[in-house]
Design a protein around this nucleic acid. Structure first.
Lengths: 224, 224
DNA sequence: ACAATGCTTCGATGGGGAACGAACTATGCG
DNA sequence: CGCATAGTTCGTTCCCCATCGAAGCATTGT
């Protein structure tokens, strides 16, 4: 019978699906509110709150209170490294799934992540925006570049942040293992994509299917 | 709501105390039988068997049947790395135990991590090898330098990689929070240390105790 | 002061899974 | 063969904890 660092305690904190989803969401590097995390995890607010207090007690999260908002974030790089290690094993061991069907391919290409676009398309888009210096990537953070307002106004998107929620946020993509764009800007872009009918959402799935013409338009506007 | 690699599934496997004890025991690097693991975990044989089949199904263990004995071992370095990462977090946030005992000091100084050396000694060694440009550290990756083959041949270690496993790999050290050397080269070095009797393994522990002379020899060869 | 929002606490419910004893299978030994 | 050792499977019991609705605090806005 062994003793030492209580590894089971830490692992079991990550071992609940709701908590695992929350932690994965926080891997983007930005702190999120309890409500946002409840959405990410797919549980009610009371349930999320309970989970969050457990994660706090376990030392995996930090809390920054700002008025009536409470921003939860990962406690540090060591915790992030642990999540990444677990994700690595899960990814290595997981693909026991029988042949990735077309749905999986579609999911990898483009899917909804809460309220914004994720997948290869989304990662390519963020790369391009950063390449054109419309957005500026600092370490793990993303900010608007000087030309951002003009650039997005042309497309018909207002980058003024009405809500308190950040305009830009990096969100880690599990299929590509790189960041894509979240935040109100990411949400606005997804809205536009669906509004212009460049793509439609697959029913009962997070996959986003672009029409041939829609893909062309998307690439012209965001990857051009 | 997120999807992707099922991290909760993997984490919950580690999240049970009995299973966590088994995995920790297997971090020593040697495969153990079901009965031995039942003892380590402090559970009955049927319970242990049930846990082991779950760990097998989760892909965390390998099984080698030899007659009526069934030897369970960690599935690979990636799994070992994950356990180390979790241990690191647990040690960092853990209930700062009243005064670290001598055993803990020994563990911090040098211990076995699956099949290679970890602890302060191992971190110092990697630093020195990188300093001498025998190894080259790129971001998170470690490669052989031009002089590596000659350098290790002198010591009696062949750096030719026969297996598919990488020769060098960085492994995060929970006690020092820095990387040490894993991979086939790391394993070969541990082999040499034990073969030359520079150090012995503490019974029922992962600690590696250097003799005064052995430490001297080790430092001459690897830190000189 | 009152309403609205964001979040936590409380209490009741239900399901999952960890535990063990007993019975069963498999390998080795005389 | 029969007996012993090593492990797994089965069935039962029991406890922990994830879940949600309702109610309670706290902060902000009007």
């Amino acid at each position: 019978m062994r003793e030492g660092p209580d590894i089971a305690r830490i692992a079991s904190l990550v071992g609940d699906p709701a908590r695992a989803n929350m932690l994965t969401a926080l891997m983007g590097g930005t702190a999120l509110t309890a409500s946002e995390l409840a959405l990410e995890a797919g549980v009610s607010l009371p349930t999320a709150s309970s989970h969050l207090s457990k994660l706090m007690e376990g030392g995996l999260l930090t809390l920054a209170s700002q008025g009536r908002h409470r921003y939860y974030g990962l406690a540090g790089p060591q915790v992030a490294g642990m999540i990444e290690a677990i994700t690595g094993v899960a990814a290595a061991v997981g693909p026991q799934r029988v042949r990735p069907g077309p749905r999986d391919a579609a999911m990898r290409a483009a899917r909804v992540c809460y309220d914004h676009l994720a997948g290869e398309q989304a990662v390519a888009m963020l790369d391009r925006l950063v390449g054109k210096k419309v957005l500026i990537r600092d370490d793990k953070e993303i900010r608007l570049g000087p030309s951002a307002a003009a650039h997005f106004a042309e497309i018909g998107i207002d980058v003024e942040s009405k809500a308190r929620r950040p305009v830009c946020r990096a969100c880690l993509d599990w299929s590509v293992r790189r960041s894509h764009l979240a935040g109100t800007l990411g949400a606005a872009i997804l809205d536009k994509i669906l509004l212009e009918k460049w793509a439609r959402r697959e029913k009962d799935s997070r996959a986003v299917i672009f029409s041939p013409m829609g893909k062309q338009a998307f690439e012209t506007v965001f990857l051009g």
